[in-house]
Simulated scan of single mutants.
Amino acid sequence: MRKFANLLFIVFSLVFTNPVVAQDELPVRGFCIAAPQVGELDDFVRFIGEELAPRQVNVLVLRVDYNYEFESHPELRDEVALSKEQVKRLVDVCQKHSIRLIPQINLLGHQSWASDLGNFLKVYPQFDETPHVEMPENYEWPNNDGLYCKSYCPLHPGVHGVVFDLMDEVCDVFETDAFHAGMDEVFYIGDDQCPRCSGRDKAELFAGEVNKIQNHLAQNNRQLWIWGDRLLDGKTTGMGMWEASMNNTHRAIDLISKDVVICDWHYERPDKSAVYFAMKGLNVLTCPWRNPANAVLQTRDMFDFRASATPEMKVRYQGMMQTVWSGAGAFMKEFYNSKDTNINSASNCFRAMFDEIEELTANPDQNKK
């Protein structure tokens, strides 16, 4: 009888002191896309509620740039831009579904596209890192100037007064605790003809800009997110000049604040550089685009990283974020109208990534097959 009582005690102890632990879930299930144009707003608000929320998306990065009626610098607004009231509709639907809303403005690089200057350098040409490089009438790549996208000069004494105004205003209106600064594909930095940057270490210039932006955001308890490509060595890794750096900015990884969140994008190959960022003490997300097969492999890798990591490393593997490089309207049209799920596209990649997240969350042993 005593043995039976002891057995009951052991069973009781196991059941009530060792409850079943919920399956591990990714901290971030993210989606990144251009902020909708004014005429797309209704459809996009509906898309958030009907497509993002059911997939348990909990982070939405919106590439705003100048698609907002800035009050601090109205001269930088797009010709047609979202009003404060329209942005609040996005804020409300995201708060309703517990989605963290993060606005993006491209900083440092991506200040032009093809033959057109962006609003920032068009209005403030004095901030141009390479004013001697003229915008071509018919853009081609490659070209003699090495022009992909223009950059602003990070050492110009007037540039951050404008940049910080824009950051503060867009963060306030989006009621956010984070800001995405882009900072990808920066080919023009420390130009030999720049009177301020010439001869300076490109890694130090890049890190200095990252830290300056991060320090400003931290004053209001906000977090900086950036793309990770400039922090990877394109030559050593073989990743090249697009998904990594060939102009020596990669050493900035040891100079930037550990509070910065890295969005690690790889579109052609499912490279495992998230491990590198995590080992450097940085929180990291893996970001696919239009290749569903790669997205599935990248999602499995992220679950594997978290499952096999030390506690110190695990918390740095923050999850997955689908990226979209068309406008919101074009993506929604593709998403709802595309019938062929076998082709490479952002909408098919989106479906594949979130289906895989759902499968691995529900059946974690599936990843071991």
Rank of each mutant, 00 (worst) to 15 (best):
F4D: 04
I10D: 02
F12H: 01
F12K: 08
L14Q: 13
T17M: 09
P19Y: 09
P19C: 11
V20Q: 14
D24M: 15
D24F: 14
P27E: 05
C32I: 12
I33Y: 02
I33K: 09
P36N: 07
V38I: 11
E40I: 03
E50A: 12
E50W: 10
E51A: 07
L52K: 05
N58H: 08
V61S: 11
L62T: 08
Y66A: 02
F70N: 00
P74Q: 00
R77M: 07
V80Y: 09
K84P: 07
Q86I: 01
R89H: 01
V93L: 02
S98N: 15
I102D: 09
L108E: 02
H110S: 14
Q111W: 09
S112D: 14
A114I: 13
L121Q: 15
V123G: 01
Y124P: 06
Y124I: 15
P125T: 06
V133L: 08
E137Q: 14
N138Y: 13
Y139P: 09
Y139V: 06
P142H: 13
K150F: 13
P154S: 11
L155Q: 06
V159W: 05
G161D: 15
V163Y: 10
F164A: 00
L166H: 02
D168G: 09
D177W: 00
A178W: 10
D184T: 05
E185P: 12
F187S: 10
D191L: 12
D191T: 13
D192W: 07
P195E: 10
C197I: 05
C197L: 00
C197Q: 01
R200T: 02
D201Q: 02
L205H: 05
N211L: 00
K212R: 15
Q219N: 12
N221Q: 15
R222H: 07
L224G: 01
W225P: 03
D229V: 03
L231E: 05
K235N: 14
W242N: 07
A244K: 03
M246F: 04
N247Q: 13
R251T: 12
A252R: 07
I253A: 11
D254W: 05
L255I: 04
I256F: 01
S257V: 10
V261E: 01
W265F: 07
P270L: 04
A274Q: 02
A274M: 06
V275M: 09
F277H: 14
F277Q: 13
K280D: 02
L282K: 06
N283L: 05
N291C: 11
N294H: 15
A295P: 01
V296I: 13
L297R: 04
Q298S: 05
T299A: 15
M302K: 03
F305L: 06
A307S: 10
A309K: 10
M313S: 02
K314D: 01
Y317G: 08
Q318W: 01
V324G: 05
W325A: 04
A328R: 13
A330Q: 11
M332C: 03
F335C: 15
S347R: 11
S347C: 15
C349F: 03
R351E: 09
D355I: 07
I357K: 06
E358F: 14
Q366C: 14
Q366F: 11
K368C: 12
K368L: 08
